[in-house]
Computed example of a mutant assay.
Amino acid sequence: MAPSACIDLRPGERVHLLGVARASIESGLHQGRALSIDDADITATLAARLGVFVTLTRQCALRGCIGSLESAEPLPRSVADSAYGAAFRDPRFPRLEAAELGEIRIEISVLSAMVPVRAASREALLAQLAPAADGLLLKDGAHRSTFLPKVWEQLPEPAHFLEQLMIKAGLPANHWSSGLRFYRYGATCFSETFADTPA
């Protein structure tokens, strides 16, 4: 079964969420916390409770990525929290500094609901994957990892995609067990253009 349809955001709503993300990073730099969102600023569409990831790049290289697969908060709050986390809480990178802000490009991924993928073997799972479209969550006991759909850009072959997802979860690349569980999801992705990014 394919993942449920992703949210349909109008151009103005996308621009608004990107602005929230950048303002939240600025709030982190100047006030040490994520941007506070007033209920009055949340429209009916943006009140959706969906998973969100915010990815930061600098000179086309990853500079931070934080998010959640599910959320109990409306989209603007999830975006504000994830943007702050990507800038200041990604353990792979030092905290973002003010001098970097003008070089940072922001991308937001709003996720659809998770759909279980039933597969009795590695081959059966690979046959069900839709490259460039599916995000995939892996669970096996205490092991857990996910790749957003955009990861297919770096790992276009399903077998390699799955191997790297296993490794990310701390498992052998060729691992398979009866305890493995997979969930697929889609994503609506949008990002700042260079014209949107402050000089």
Rank of each mutant, 00 (worst) to 15 (best):
A2Q: 08
P3L: 00
P3Y: 05
S4Y: 01
C6M: 10
P11K: 02
E13R: 06
R14C: 14
V15D: 11
H16C: 03
L17G: 08
L18N: 07
V20W: 00
R22L: 08
R22N: 05
A23I: 02
S24A: 11
I25S: 05
I25W: 06
H30F: 14
R33L: 13
A34K: 11
D38N: 14
D38G: 10
D41C: 12
L46K: 09
L46W: 08
A47I: 11
A47F: 08
A47H: 13
R49N: 09
F53V: 04
L56Q: 02
L62K: 07
L62I: 09
R63I: 12
G64D: 04
G67C: 09
L69I: 15
S78A: 15
A80M: 00
D81M: 07
S82V: 02
G85I: 00
A86I: 05
A86F: 01
R92P: 04
E97L: 08
A98F: 01
A98I: 10
G102H: 12
R105L: 12
R105H: 10
I106Q: 00
I108P: 05
I108N: 05
A113G: 13
V115D: 11
V115N: 09
S121H: 07
E123S: 13
L126N: 06
L136W: 02
K139I: 07
K139E: 15
K139Y: 03
P149G: 13
P149D: 12
K150C: 13
W152F: 12
E153R: 15
L155Q: 12
L155S: 12
A159E: 15
Q164F: 13
Q164D: 15
A169F: 11
G170P: 11
P172T: 02
P172L: 05
W176E: 07
S177F: 05
R181Y: 03
Y183P: 01
R184Q: 10
R184P: 00
F190G: 08
S191W: 02
S191G: 10
E192L: 08
A195K: 11
P198L: 13
P198H: 06
A199M: 00
